[in-house]
Design a protein around this nucleic acid. Structure first.
Lengths: 320, 320
DNA sequence: CTGTTAGCGCATTCAA
DNA sequence: TTGAATGCGCTAACAG
């Protein structure tokens, strides 16, 4: 029936007729119990409501479906403490492999556990330094540098990096590192990072920014470590009576598609989010088949221009 | 071990110690094979990349997790022809129940099949007329009327309804019906609906609108059948050199959170999207336990004001 | 109160 | 080429 067995055409035809007659569908759980492996992949992401993760899951789902697998999807709600519990849940379901985005891809007991259990997994968005861990992402530090350089080229000198909590995002940390490196290359001191909860409401963001943006030497540009944060910060800055990009330029990271639709369009680092999810599944299957490569795979990013950044006005330009 | 059996405290302690020792985790598939039922729910939605669906899945996932269940998530990519295939896949996985959003909740062979197989399911966003089908949604016709009345109150008379394909969305159809009813109540003729692919790119939307918006009697307001479409249409209208809301007011449907962050904020019908997903799971468990209510449950919506609509300018106002 | 066993649906092995 | 038996991990029923 599954093509494995040997049977005459006649018998096969009769079996198929009977299957149709009784509308019989083979049960995956019987198959799973026998083979001790399922045709199911587990997915762990921080949240489904962030389009950047939803987009990767869309790619994961499509690719898994194309290969006859289904997806168990779970979310940590940005709580790293939940990673272990979700992994255990998925292991209990005997998933064939995992695709996940974690808070810290290096110092992570949950990943240690997966390694110890020899359960294949591929990370998305994470950029582990431990080379034996498989991941699909972009070069976040390079992207952070590229964005910073673009703003420097527009004449900005006081560029503030606004980050989601470093503790829940290595992307945020690496992008910030790229920013620091680019500032240093340009002979400028990096401003102290403004680290905040990017899920916070607009009020919280406004409060966090008000002192900084009212100062005489206020930054002329803000780089936000992700697009949702950038959109929220943009709204907060406008609420404070400042113009974007007239008074303050703003750029984000991630390349969520909504960023193209807002006006002005959000300047951001565009990642192939869906493709990253697809590619993670491709690599996961290679791992499951035992011939997979380890380590980080970088997909190309590009700077998406957008009306939220502009050349710095001469009057507000700081000393070169 | 699962609390069912009877055992002395001593034995239980020894068993638990052994479990910890061997890091033993009971396999869900063994349990499933025995009981012929899994602790897994299936989810079918058009797409994960539309925040309105992602948000409901987030609610579904949280509620399912709280009840010790996992989620198999699949997407039709807006192809109704794929519904049946996905349902069959999930049935083969012996899901305990389904939460889904379909193209047509009434004339739908796939749902007929679920009914015939007595597989419990609850729809989200769909609004079936067949009262034996369980669904959680808002009153889309009332919402369409409310939005239309708000625009009429601002002096708009030529209000165009821009819809995603009716064939893939009963929401779109019902919201349009509400628009028609409200226009009729106000003694105005409904404009011919502009039905288009809401996944189309901005170019396609611009092309579709250009004739309509260049006419002398162009509409002063557009109601879009969902928020993503509204954002895209807003961008297209602006590309044509028109101001929103100065020249054209635009309103959407769904209440995606991004709509609050764009500037001006998108006027829309706010639905409790996450709560709808949670509520669907609550009702699904009732159905699975055999004591569930049938039929459509309407959760409250509200008109979210936003800067994309404004009173009609006297010069462009049509005859009352 | 505790240890043993049958059987869920499938794939695999062995026997005919 | 085909049929029959086995066992995967678990739960429920039963025997001790």
């Amino acid at each position: 029936m599954n093509g494995t067995g040997r049977a005459s055409a006649d018998v096969e035809a009769r079996v198929r007729a009977a299957m149709a007659e009784l509308s019989f569908r083979p049960s995956e759980i019987g198959r799973a119990l026998k083979s001790l492996r399922t045709r199911t992949l587990g997915v762990i992401i921080p949240s489904l409501t962030n389009p950047v993760f939803a987009s990767s899951v869309a790619g994961i789902e499509a690719q898994a479906r194309a290969r006859g697998h289904t997806l168990l999807v779970t979310a940590t709600d940005y709580d790293p403490g939940r990673e272990r519990e979700l992994v255990d849940t998925l292991i209990a379901q005997s998933v064939a492999g995992l695709v996940l985005t974690v808070a810290d891809p290096d110092d992570n007991p949950t990943l240690d556990h997966l390694d110890a259990e020899s359960i294949p997994y591929v990370m998305v968005y994470n950029e582990p330094k431990r080379t034996h861990r498989a991941a699909v992402t972009v070069d976040n530090a390079a992207a952070g540098a590229a964005l910073t350089e673009a703003l420097l080229a527009l004449g900005h000198r006081r560029i503030l990096f606004v980050a989601g909590r470093f503790s829940t995002s290595d992307r945020s940390r690496l992008r910030h590192q790229g920013y620091c490196a680019a500032m240093h290359m340009a002979g400028r001191a990096a401003e102290p990072v403004l680290e905040l909860d990017y899920l916070g409401d607009a009020d919280a963001h406004r409060a966090a920014l008000s002192n900084l943006l009212c100062a005489a030497d206020r930054p002329t540009a803000l780089i936000c470590s992700n697009d949702l944060l950038a959109l929220s910060i943009t709204a907060a800055v406008r609420d404070m009576g400042l113009s974007v990009p007239g008074d303050v330029s703003i750029a984000g990271f991630d390349g969520i598609s909504i960023g193209r639709l807002v006006s002005p369009a959000l300047c951001t680092i565009d990642q192939p989010t869906r493709r990253m999810g697809e590619r993670a599944v491709e690599r996961l299957f290679e791992l499951m088949e035992g011939n997979g490569a380890r380590g980080v795979e970088h997909l190309p990013f590009h700077l998406r221009p957008g009306g939220t950044i502009a050349a710095v006005a001469p009057s507000t330009q700081g000393p070169a």
